[in-house]
Design a protein around this nucleic acid. Structure first.
Length: 591
DNA sequence: GCCGTTTTCGGCCCGACTGTTTTCAGTCG
């Protein structure tokens, strides 16, 4: 059984406080490596699938987590046990906490924030706006008219658009942009790098790379794109614009001989690159976006000019990794989650691909809230080359979506019987059965037994406290008829937080009861997250990648689900719907 | 502040652009 936990403090709160320490220390001009140490710890915590509070309660040694040493381990324990964080309190006595908010403005770093605060008594974004209106900012040393104008824009952006773009939304702007940039004069290579290439669930901006000999006309072409709202900067090799929906695009133009190194560098992640470069330095190599260079004997790498030293790689990404003694790795893995070590041992996972997917196991029809009939959905699935599919309309309780009761479900089966013979795809009788408040299911046992596939999920009482919500879902997963837990955390990216839920306990329960967890491929959900998918794989819990399509068009979401699965290191065998129909049926029958 | 089969001390990734600095600091990615 799982333990109801006394979670005095969530990981996210601990991470936020440590992050605030980093900001405040930076404003105080503390040792930059000390600042980075706090940020590294924050990153580690954000990636955890387990609760720190629980780890503290169970007496685990937090210093075994990377980036967390004696000091920060002590601070975490202090926060968990007392709810207090004395270091942060002390810092607040020295720097008002709101001064750190200024760092969120584009163009304001720690030095400028400090100066604004110390010399003009500016503590908040509102203060800064007043000071700009009063003409006081331009009089500061290091600030001028241009800076003042940029700060006004930064304040506007800060208030208007603070969120990252969901990958699916970014795609709508990136695809036409790529088409347009492909028409620029002399373009030899063109790619999007950055988190977009890593297929991260959200992207902050778009990093565009171009290889060509003459940069000028390409930059000109870029800044004259129809959808550009404003140009932030346009240098010889680097430019930045904001597109009308508020999406920033950075363009980098390079010669072909450096293109692979640039693609590697700008794909990131930052953490991946830091580790890679450190590893290179140990081997006497220096990596930059221009290539991999040998550091000459007796030369201090810090004294080297950009591009100095003998170039040993740079034209291709494969070559860059090879020069560092590594095999090329898929962008989705480049998060410094062990991929560099795995590449060094040639033990990278053989990641699942879209072409491995043999069926889609969650979709809706006009029987509940879908836009298309079952037959239309089935034909669309068949066109995608699937062997099987599941029709998973809502159950009765989800009345706003027109959920089905037992009688309607039987009617639905008759409809499927009517045309199934004309199609070359297996239609699994299924239902997205609502999990009721107490963890029981919204369909009687007789009908649950008759279903080929039982999907369960939460659509109500999303704000239960963690212990109750966890127990509810664990109860549902424990029902012997259940096969798949759908959209397990209920989050909607940029819109709704996940339920307060002990995901680890749910995954453990899924393993115990031979239940698979869904990776909902809808780009607004992508639920589970890459971290939790990774954890499911570690625990040996099968993952189902499903689109939750409400129309034939939504079936294309499978691509996003597969990308997220790859970010979670899934191989084809980890994914239930890569199996053949007969293998899938065996699993469903628990043979 | 963290970390270590080259180190328990001395490192910690690297380069472009902008503005106001007359030689480079600050910010960003």
């Amino acid at each position: 059984m799982f333990h109801a936990k006394l979670q005095s403090m969530e990981n996210v709160e601990i991470a936020e406080r440590l992050s605030e320490v980093a900001d405040l220390l930076e404003i105080q001009e503390a040792n930059p490596f000390r600042v980075r140490a706090y940020r590294n710890a924050v990153r580690t915590i954000e990636g955890l699938t387990r609760s720190l509070a629980e780890m503290v309660e169970e007496g685990e040694d937090l210093t075994e987590l990377s980036g967390i040493g004696e000091d920060i381990s002590g601070y975490i324990t202090e926060m968990v046990e007392t709810g207090e964080f004395q270091l942060l309190r002390d810092l607040h006595d020295e720097v008002p906490p709101t001064v750190a908010d200024l760092l969120d403005l584009e163009g304001i770093g720690p030095k400028k924030a400090k100066k604004l605060w110390e010399e003009l008594d500016i503590e908040t974004v509102d203060d800064l706006e007043d000071a700009l209106d009063g003409g006081r900012v331009v009089e500061l040393e290091g600030f001028g008219q241009k800076t003042a104008e940029k700060l006004r824009q930064a304040i506007e952006d800060f208030r208007e658009h603070r969120e990252r773009f969901r990958l699916g939304d970014a795609d709508r702007w990136v695809e036409p942009l790529l088409e347009y940039m492909g028409e620029a004069p002399g373009v030899e290579e063109l790619d999007v790098a950055g988190s977009y290439r890593r297929r991260k669930e959200t992207v902050g901006d778009i990093d565009l790379l171009v290889a060509c000999d003459d940069a000028g006309p390409v930059m000109e072409h870029f800044t004259s794109y129809d959808l550009v709202e404003r140009v932030i900067e346009a240098g010889e090799t680097r430019g930045s614009v904001v597109l009308r929906p508020g999406l920033q695009v950075d363009l980098r133009i390079l010669p072909g001989e450096s293109y692979g190194a640039a693609l590697q560098y700008f794909t990131g992640s930052l953490e991946h690159n830091v580790k890679l470069r450190k590893r290179a330095l140990d081997d006497g190599l220096r990596v930059s976006e221009y290539g991999v260079f040998e550091i000459p004997e007796g030369v201090d790498p810090d004294e080297m000019e950009p591009g100095e030293g003998e170039r040993v790689a740079g034209e291709t990404e494969e070559g860059v990794y090879e020069a560092l003694g590594l095999v090329w790795m898929p962008p989705e893995l480049r998060e410094d989650r062990g991929e560099i070590e795995a590449a060094g041992e040639d033990e990278l996972p053989d990641l699942v691909e879209l072409s491995d997917i043999r069926g889609d196991l969650q979709m809706h029809s006009t029987w509940s809230d879908g836009k298309n009939t079952i037959e239309t959905m089935a034909r669309a699935c068949q066109e995608r080359g699937y062997e099987y599919m599941a029709i998973t309309d809502h159950s009765r309780r989800v009345s706003v979506a027109g959920g089905l009761d037992e009688d309607e479900l039987e009617e639905q089966w008759k409809e499927i019987d009517g045309f199934e013979g004309d199609l070359d795809i297996e239609i699994l009788r299924s239902l997205e059965v609502d999990i009721l408040k107490d963890g029981s299911l919204d369909l009687d046992d007789e009908h649950l037994e008759k279903l080929d596939l039982v999907l369960v999920s939460v659509h109500s009482y999303m704000d239960l406290d963690g212990a109750e919500q966890t127990e509810r879902i664990v109860t549902a997963v424990s029902h012997p008829a259940v096969h798949v837990l759908a959209h397990p955390t209920g989050r909607r990216i940029n819109e709704r937080q996940p339920y307060d839920l002990d995901v680890e306990a749910v995954l453990e329960a899924a393993r115990e009861h031979d239940v698979a967890v869904e990776l909902n491929a809808n780009p607004e959900r992508l639920d589970l997250s890459d971290r939790h998918v990774f954890r499911a794989r570690e625990l040996g819990v099968p993952v189902v990648i499903s689109t939750d399509a409400h129309s034939t068009d939504n079936l294309r979401y499978m691509e996003y689900g597969v990308a997220q699965a790859r970010r979670g290191w899934l191989e084809p065998d980890d994914v239930l719907n890569t199996r053949s129909l007969s293998e899938l049926k065996k699993w469903l029958d628990r043979e």
